[in-house]
Design a protein around this nucleic acid. Structure first.
Lengths: 337, 337
DNA sequence: CAAAAAATTGAAATCGCTTTGAATAACGCC
DNA sequence: GGCGTTATTCAAAGCGATTTCAATTTTTTG
């Protein structure tokens, strides 16, 4: 069923039918209703490619994944929020997987040149993100989940990682901890750097030293965290508290603490960052986990809204939101013995 | 940069340029090279919408998520494999999120009618899957990850859930367990039903009774599993072994066992199904987890290949693969005390 | 009631590519 | 050298929508 056939069936021109379906004002109300009713009854749907070609809009936004290991729980949650909101506007998400940095830049260029997407979403940016610079140069709208410093205005949404970490660290210090370990995300990512900054700021405010042996940067898996925590627990004096970059990290630390024969929340405390995964609930861990909490899914929803605004013509420089982060104290954090 | 401009720049017709770029034989080798080199140099890429309109192929396959809670680790891993392989062929993945059953069927109809995708991938099918029937009726290619019984030939790839569960259960019985609990996936899904069948078959083969109190169906989250396991551990006599439908489920059971004061792998054994998540390694859990193992990511890769075959004209009825499942024994399973 | 204005409809151009059918160029053979 | 083949190239016709511009009808107004 194509437009032409629908028009013939209705005894109208394609022009009028197209207008009626797209809600243009210059079509009589009665015909509009008639057209819409008939189209719905016959199950007519405009051919997406034809419409895209004619309008010049792709009706899709791009999301590039760097290596499939990035396709983890964080990305998933974020995408869930994003795609839910975009679907309401009939905007598609175009997923692209790349294995190397070369490929990644090429992927942006390709998608842009072939007009497959109207805009991109960049996630986990670095402090100075080349991808953002590239998109700026080839003049394609984009929004960052996170922040970067490229000296040009751009749209972004980020959570207050620095503030969150500063509060969590201060809290541990208040409880009496003096040897606090930080198992952070990979070096170079803005969120990880911001968290480290918050960590250092809190220590500095109390005049506590920064021990490099108690700081690590790694991907967020329980396995890696397990090993790192194990090593740190063998130090003398050992850390009495851990700050974990993610819930997966926290699971690994949990395991290391137990295996070393320490009691969680008593001998060793943990505060982890919780992106609110529906299948991994901090409240239901044992012991319940103290967290800095911010729903990454909610961020996805909001970014969808912001990108729609961007495509509606709102200037990129006018789009930015910094979300505060909750500090939720539960049983995994307490005073040291 | 569009085809017309490129053609003018080259002093050739659009026809020839198009053919040269798409590798048609009726263009002189020297011109082909010249055209390809120039196109690459100028960064020309055909407009995707235009090409799709002209060829009638969408260059994308559809993947519908039922409710965002389905957007979990399993889906993620699968998609990672799928999209990696499809990207090599420049085929996109179109993700759609739906919240209700109504919406879901509508989503298939919409995507099909608007020609946004060439084929669909169905996952977690039910024993008799209406989605498959719908796609069959509207005559759109599709492949199932899993199996269903709709009385018509269709393409599928599945793992041997029944066999895996039967072996795992038999092994526990061999170790001496008599009270074995099964925390399975949601009722109605083929994979969950197959696993239950395997479980029952193993028990029946030894003449052991099936205790409904030791069987549960639920989503794969540690929280839910924790509660279910907790309840079961209060039974008298309590189960001495658990079979877990997923690693998340296993984490919840771990927690319940520890909280109840039992020792893992000694007082209570676990064998879990492991879909091989890179961030949750059975080998590195404490104690290391015994599993039935099959990489869901590898399945995604393979399904990508199968769907390409399907689009190439291979009959759906000729496409099906049943993968065997490894049984990997580690420390979480042992003889009962 | 005629003229002007507003509302409604339609024919045809357009988006950027692929592909058909025709035209031209190059080649092989006697 | 002439002619039938074969190899290359091109002009133009789609693909299925949107949109411009013009035409027609209806309504308003003097």
């Amino acid at each position: 069923m194509k437009l032409k056939e629908l028009a013939e069936h209705l005894g109208l021109s394609q022009t009028t039918v197209s207008r009626a379906l797209n809600g243009y004002p210059e079509v009589k109300e009665s015909t509009r209703l008639m057209v819409q009713e008939t189209a719905a009854r016959l199950g007519y749907r405009p051919n997406a490619s034809a419409r895209r070609l004619a309008t010049g809009r792709a009706g899709a936004i791009g999301f590039v994944l760097r290596g499939s290991e990035e396709f983890g729980p964080h990305t998933t949650e974020f995408l869930a929020g994003l795609s839910g909101r975009l679907a309401e506007e009939e905007v598609d998400i175009l997923l692209t997987n790349v294995d190397s940095y070369q490929e990644e830049l090429a992927a942006y260029r390709r998608a842009a040149a072939s007009k497959k997407v109207d805009a991109f979403i960049l996630h986990s940016p670095k402090l100075r993100d080349e991808r953002a610079e590239l998109l700026h140069d080839i003049n394609i709208p984009y929004i960052l989940h996170g922040r970067t410093e490229i000296g040009r205005p751009h749209a972004w949404l980020d959570i207050d990682n620095q503030g969150a970490m500063e509060r969590a660290t201060s809290h541990l210090i208040d409880l009496g901890h003096r040897r606090i370990a930080l198992i952070n995300g990979v070096r170079g990512r803005t969120f990880a750097e911001h968290r480290e900054a918050g960590f250092r700021a809190a220590l500095a405010a109390r005049g506590l030293p920064v021990d490099p042996a108690l700081m690590a940067n790694a991907i967020f898996t329980d396995e890696v965290a397990f090993r790192l925590a194990q090593t740190m627990l063998e130090l003398k004096p050992r850390p009495t508290a851990f700050l974990a970059g993610s819930m997966m990290t926290a699971l690994g630390i949990f395991r290391a603490i137990r295996q070393a024969g320490f009691e969680l929340g008593k001998d060793v405390s943990i505060i982890a960052h919780d992106d609110v995964f529906p299948y991994l609930n901090a409240d239901n861990m044992f012991p319940a986990m103290s967290t800095t909490r911010s729903s990454i899914r909610a961020a996805g929803v909001r970014i969808a809204e912001l990108i729609l605004q961007l495509l509606d013509g709102k200037p990129a420089g006018a789009i930015h939101e910094l979300w505060p982060v909750d500090l939720v104290l539960r049983q995994s954090s307490g005073p040291p013995r």
